Computed example of a mutant assay.
Amino acid sequence: MHAPILGSLSLAWPDEAACAACAQALAASPALDDALIELDGPLGAGKTSFTRHLLRALGVAGRIKSPSYAVVEPHAWTGADGRPRQAWHFDFYRFGDPREWEDAGLRELFAGPGLKLVEWPALAGPDRPACDLRLELAPVADEGSRSVLAQARSPRGMQLIDALRPAH
């Protein structure tokens, strides 16, 4: 389901360090706790890399693997305030029919607490929950460089975009 775009921000990631810095800025936002973030872009655009950087910035330890085959990978860590936190990393790349969204039984995870990071969201079909923030990643001519369009789809998404704005 697509909510209206409340605001947007264009970013450039000239290298992996810029991607990591953006993830670090987002991780510092209190609005991130129960956010639903969609990551869209072609293969190799950096969706999983950004997710790994974000989860590391949040404090997730251990291996962070792509959920391409498992569809969802759970992650848990203790926040700076000492409270337990959780995130769910979804990858719908292998979905061939939007009905697989319903068949997978993921609605409860999306309705529950925790950060939700979704790669290939369109393949889950139109009945998926609306996101707070959508990041459209696109490789550019320079090797390793990315352009990113951040779109806020909720008031929480606007707070997340504010966290991504470069400081002046």
Score class of each variant (00 low, 15 high):
A150T: 06
L109N: 09
E100P: 02
P84A: 14
G157W: 01
L39F: 06
L123D: 04
A45W: 00
P42E: 15
I5A: 15
D81Q: 08
R107D: 15
A17Q: 14
G62D: 07
F95Q: 03
T48C: 05
I5G: 09
G96Y: 04
A138F: 00
R56S: 13
A31I: 07
L55Y: 03
W88R: 09
H75F: 12
R128G: 08
A163I: 02
E16M: 08
P74Y: 13
L137A: 06
L117F: 02
Q159Y: 00
E38H: 10
R56C: 12
P129Y: 13
H168F: 14
A57Q: 05
W13M: 13
L160R: 04
A35W: 01
A130S: 14
E136W: 10
C22N: 09
A163Y: 03
L6H: 10
R94W: 05
F90C: 09
T78I: 15
R165D: 01
Q151L: 11
G157Q: 03
L164Y: 03
H53T: 02
L6K: 13
T51D: 01
P14G: 11
V72Y: 03
A25D: 07
S154H: 08
L115G: 01
A28R: 10
A12C: 09
S147H: 11
H53E: 08
R99Q: 14
P67W: 06
A141H: 05
G44V: 10
W120D: 03
R99K: 10
K116L: 09
E136C: 13
A87Q: 03
D91Y: 04
K65I: 13
R52M: 10
R99N: 13
D127H: 14
D33C: 03
R52C: 05
C131G: 11
R56P: 06
S49H: 13
F92V: 04
V60H: 09
G96Q: 15
A45T: 05
